[in-house]
Design a protein around this nucleic acid. Sequence first.
DNA 1: CCCTGGCCGCTTTTT
DNA 2: GCGGCCAGGG
Length: 794
Amino acid sequence: MSNQWAKDSLSLRKKILETQYARLNGKQKEAVFHTEGPLLILAGAGSGKTTVLIQRIANIIRYGNAYESTEFSPELSETEYELLTRYAAGDEGVDRRAADALLSCRPAKAWQILAITFTNKAAGELKDRLYAMLGDEGNDVWASTFHAACARMLRRDADRIGYTSHFTVYDTDDSRRLMKDCQKALNIEERFLPVKAILGEISRAKDSGLSPKEYAKTAGSDFRLSKIAEAYEMYQRRLREGNAMDFDDLLLNAVNLLESSPETLDYYQNRFRYVLVDEYQDTNRIQCRFIKLLAGKWKNLCVVGDDDQSIYKFRGATIENILYFEREYPDAHVIRLEQNYRSTQNILDAANGVIANNSERKGKTLWTGNGEGEKLSIYTADNEQNEASYIVDVLIEQAAKGRSYSDFAVLYRMNAQSNTIEKNLVKSGIPYRIIGGHRFYERKEIRDMIAYLSVINNPGDEVRLRRIINEPKRAIGDRTVNLASEISEGLGISLFEVLTHADEYERLQRSSQKLMGFAAMITELMEFNAAHEESLHELYEHLLEKTQYIPSLDPHSDDTQTRIENIHELASNLLRFETEHDEVSLSAFLEEVSLMTDIDNYNAAAESVVLMTMHAAKGLEFPYVFLPGFEEGIFPGFSALMNPTEIEEERRLAYVGITRAKEKVYILHADSRMLYGSTNRNRLSRFAQEIPEELTEKSRTRQWEKLDSSLRRPEDAKLSRAATTQSAYTIGAGQANPSAASLYFPGERVSHKSFGEGEILKVTAMGNDALLEIAFDTVGTKKLMSNFARLKKI
DNA sequence: CCCTGGCCGCTTTTT
DNA sequence: GCGGCCAGGG
């Protein structure tokens, strides 16, 4: 083969590959084609980073390092060269598989690729898109969260670190219960050291890879720290005794497993030729170590992150990891993705304007080809009620224009803000969903059911055993359980074991029948599970029957019906799990459940407005975004005001919030706000003021709403007059086309097809439409758009 | 053992 | 303003 021939072949190969990924921009292509060695992708919001990740994986599987490699094996024959020439020319008749085989250079098998994300949702999306692109082979890619990947490794080799493969994963609530227990046993007053504080400290210790012993050394003579060390020691011992791990243990134990077992490390290092990590700015130290270990052999490690979107510092995430990456891998290739495909230029300029005030950043300026778009609107409300009703008004107005409710998101700083907005949405009959708040798996009845299943799976789990031992009431009180627990501690056996032979212990004589009855029931359920392992829903039915949980619920309580529905909902979840998974077992189900969160169930297609925190919204996008509570003391939050680093973290959160929007951002703030039962006056957030003025449009509470406000105080009136003169009304200015408005008058009676009959209280012109406030006889007062409402006069 | 009334306290939280 | 948690009486 002549040099010229080889050169031609290579350039032909490049040309073909380029056309395969023609829809990507230059930087994106660079990221896709650079497969070997460490790679850092700094990807701005909306820069198509998920697409890049997926295409990159697909490229590795299809073509390997074909683009950058100078080797071509085997050497091309003349017919093969011709085949490629035709392929390059776009000839449809070419055998694609044959051509791909010729083009590729050391492609990887799908199972050699590990892609780590932070949410199950992101992992699921990755899996789905890989499947769509690669078919069944796509399923072989390990696409999972850090925690799920660790759990999977630990299940396999649990015995190597002193666990059984049926170990239970504790969530925050379980951890708290356990810690409370430990504090009681160690006489550590909660007012001296709150549960949360100790757990936070332990979490930090685990992040640094410190065992209880090592932590105790660092504590030195500090009294508080040494108490925490004691608590840590006991907490960890109890977890181990219960064959349980908390979230941090999943990572810590996985790292310990890899570091202590050379065979295991070897196996995974050889296996994972390519490792990809999404949202790298949110990784903590232990996650960084985990990744480093896995990618240790091939060093084909690609991390994607955006320092400007680092909003989990408070949980141990450290931007250091990005800086460290370049230090650890000096030959790392760095690619910046700055072209945004999501938002308008105005939105990006606003976000850029805000984030530019942060000093600690790598520096990056987003731009887009999407055009300027609308200005951001900044609305000043009198109070939080008015802020909420403004959101509702805009929603109604936009819905009247044919916008779908699912195009809107309300993103706030803290969950407590959702209440007022929720009530206003209910009042107007607007469909909505709240992400966060009470999650399905956090409801009491569901937690109880999960606890039963956990105990059946792992009877050593004392925390969950205690949760259900008297639920429903079996006349087994705390005293008895504590007594039994002490006995078990003394004998070094599990609490459950003590319960099974309760009559053998004199101190338990009085309640031994009840304890043994309970233990026998659990044993029976365990046997049932062993005999019908594939049928989780049957086990569940049996469990409900045996425990008489549903009949025990108070029939006079308002929420009993909802609880029963939730219990049945869990049954369908079990059934769904059985049909969706090849390998069905109780442990597998419990593992999935323990790592699941609310956001995973978010479905963008559902026809409703979505409410969530800005944290939860990361990675999502919406045409219209409302950002209520842009006030000093709310956002940035009260405790961040005095602390420059925390202010910077809040500012990044503001950046995340603004960049969620594709078309329009509504920033809202209230002159006075009731929160936690007391009213405060807050100034407009600095973040709103950091947006260049020419990008914004300001407005404030309209007169007709002010008249309506019963909460109004004299000083408000004065304030609003001053503000009104300097800023124009934008939305729903009163002097629009009066035609629709003149159809209806206050006092008239009308009928609506779902709300029934009512009396018009107020009519306000809005564009060609009119906003009607109607007091319905049965469903209360609602605001409706007249064109939309199809009212009949009576 | 279990129910009820008063009191505290309260960012964000992918897992 | 509301819910979770503990103490005391039934």
